[in-house]
Amino acid sequence: MKALQILIDGFAISALYGLGAVGFTLIFGVSGVLNLAHGGLMVVAALTGWLAAGELGLGTVLGTLVGILAGLVAAYATYAIVVRPIQRSRAIRPEEMEIFVLTGTLLWGIMIQVGMGYLFSDNPVTMRPLLPGVLTLGGVRTPVNEIMIAALCWISLGLMWLLVNRTRAGKALLAASMNPRGLTLLGYELSHIYLLVWTIYGLLAGTAGVLLASFLGVSTANAGQLTASAFSIVILGGLGSVSGSLIAAYVVGYLETATAYLIAPTLRPIPALILLVLVIYVRPQGLLGRR
């Protein structure tokens, strides 16, 4: 009974972790950017979705879409205001570019968090479930919304997979992650590819944000934690590896859920962090990392 409960709960939360982390790793793989404003973008999506669904009276479905759109806009803003100017700056030496992007996005993330805190307070908000009610699965009472969220996560991930592997633009994106110079020699405009990857990222992070709001609730105070969680999943899975991130999301999700159920809810994040430290010692490139 408890095992089944862990299996079901862990599945949904892991799917959500995966969705949040995949965009994060994709953007690193393709453009070498580690976006530390990641949690901030999820929070923007969640709060906007909540505002649209409730205050503006658009209802849950439209609110969810508005939230995802807000995530996309926030991702574009991050790219246009913070990342691109740093990448194009002649004053910054190329070998220092990554650290400047890290610092820039970190500060941007804090600005988003504080700004959203000012507008919305740091009280957590929750979106009404897309599907209310509960279902009893093998004796475990599970909210229908939880099953729905897991399904939506996997549909989003599936769509992203199709886009990357089955379309011309997606293949170019994949090529950019392997050899950007080769791609430019073939006549591709790298900035278009960057825009595409930021679009995918924005949609994924936005979706993860609104789904999290409808599953557990989101507050501006969570921004840092959400970034840290995506960051550790991506490190565990291997920077830039999408499948590695998915596996890592499930490892972390199940480890946390099992700890919460079997040991104590208070110790929830600890074992996953210990695992992360071990992985950094033994296999610094992560589970499926390339370098």
């Binding site: 709960d9 939360i13 557990l216 609730g217 159920y261 809810p265 929830r268």
Partner: peptide, 15 residues
């Protein structure tokens, strides 16, 4: 007694 940072209360309700 739970940590105020807790976000998922399912295991607590379960217990």
């Amino acid at each position: 007694r739970f940590n105020p940072d807790t976000t998922d209360f399912t295991p607590i309700f379960n217990q």
